[in-house]
């Protein structure tokens, strides 16, 4: 009995710690603090408990318990739906939305992190059950580090180079370099844009990156992250100052325009570099034979 308790508590502790480590609160303020955090920590605790009891249940040949555990683990699929629903509702009140791809990415990450928690708890409780505390501790540390590695995807800074773009008007057409953004009719708005707007060029490093940046969801994610840090002067029913990203169809680069509350070009470039590449937008065409052949 004590052995069970020991293995289960060790597993729960390892799983819960990995969930705490994976729960980040940054500029995106999602999950919201404190209640969003509380929800995810509670779910993380349940996931850890599920993972931790699996090995003792198998060892006791209690296969009914194991079957129920598998059924319970499937419930974590609902986390994705929960996140998707919440974020989609929030979209309705946002001037600059996240976009469906970003929401799907976030929802997927929350679901996957609970599976990582189950995995950490399972490994740690197994080691505690069959070996001893030292192995369990080492296993827990490795599992937490493994979970952290899984968290780190690639960023826009890895796949593209970002530099200042030449923002100018050609008549009433707002342009960055040679990409046309918008037609701005009023002279006072044109002056405001010339005085305050920032423009950058995002140049993909290869054809994979070019296709990734082509994805509309990825562009929306970039804009959303930039606005969440630098702010935007866009107002309801006054869409002249709406931040936008447009691509040059021939050269493949992307231009981004924003009238930010904090017009700091260096920060803008840094923020864009740290925007995550979305799983749904990530493209690996150069890994295929046809893709390489088409690119040469």
């Amino acid at each position: 009995m004590e052995n069970y308790l020991y293995a289960i508590i060790t597993g729960i502790a390892a799983g819960f710690i990995s969930r705490v480590v994976m729960l980040r609160n940054d500029h995106r303020n999602y999950p919201t603090y404190p209640h969003g955090h509380l929800t995810h920590l509670s779910l993380g605790f349940m996931a850890a408990a599920l993972g931790a009891v699996a090995i003792p249940a198998i060892a006791e040949e209690d296969y009914t318990a194991v079957t129920f555990l598998v059924l319970a683990a499937q419930q974590f699929r609902d986390i994705r739906n929960m996140e998707r629903e919440t974020l989609n509702r929030l979209e309705e009140t946002k001037l600059v939305p996240r976009g469906a791809d970003y929401i799907e990415g976030i929802a997927r990450v929350f679901e996957a992190r609970n599976y990582l928690v189950i995995f950490s708890a399972l490994i740690t409780s197994g080691l505690a059950w069959y070996l001893n505390g030292i192995y369990a501790l080492a296993g827990a540390v490795i599992c937490v580090l493994f979970s952290l590695c899984f968290m780190n995807g690639s960023f826009i800074g890895d796949i593209a180079e970002i530099e200042r773009g030449e923002l100018h008007f050609e008549g009433s057409l707002l342009k960055i370099n040679d990409i046309v953004f918008n037609n701005v009719g009023l002279p006072q708005v044109r002056k405001k844009i010339m005085d305050e707007a920032l423009g950058v060029i995002i140049k993909p490093k290869d054809d994979n990156a070019r296709l990734t940046l082509d994805a509309f969801g990825q562009r929306m994610a970039i804009i959303h992250d930039v606005v969440s840090i630098l702010g935007s002067k866009v107002e309801m029913d006054e869409k002249d100052l709406m931040p936008m990203a447009r691509k040059d169809p021939d050269k493949g680069y992307l231009a981004l325009y924003i009238v930010a509350n904090e017009p700091d070009l260096e920060v803008l470039i840094e923020v864009i570099k740290k925007v995550p590449v979305l799983e749904s937008s990530y493209n690996t065409t150069l890994k295929t034979f046809s893709g390489r052949k088409a690119a040469d």
């Binding site: 008549g171 037609n183 006072q188 006054e238 869409k239």
Partner: peptide
């Protein structure tokens, strides 16, 4: 024309675009 466009845009919740031939939409 600019003043009218500005006021109409604010009233109607729209954006002003210049077609370049003396026409704002």
């Amino acid at each position: 024309k600019n003043e009218l466009s500005f006021k109409l845009a604010r009233i109607l919740g729209g954006a002003v675009h210049d077609l370049g031939n003396g026409v704002h939409i």
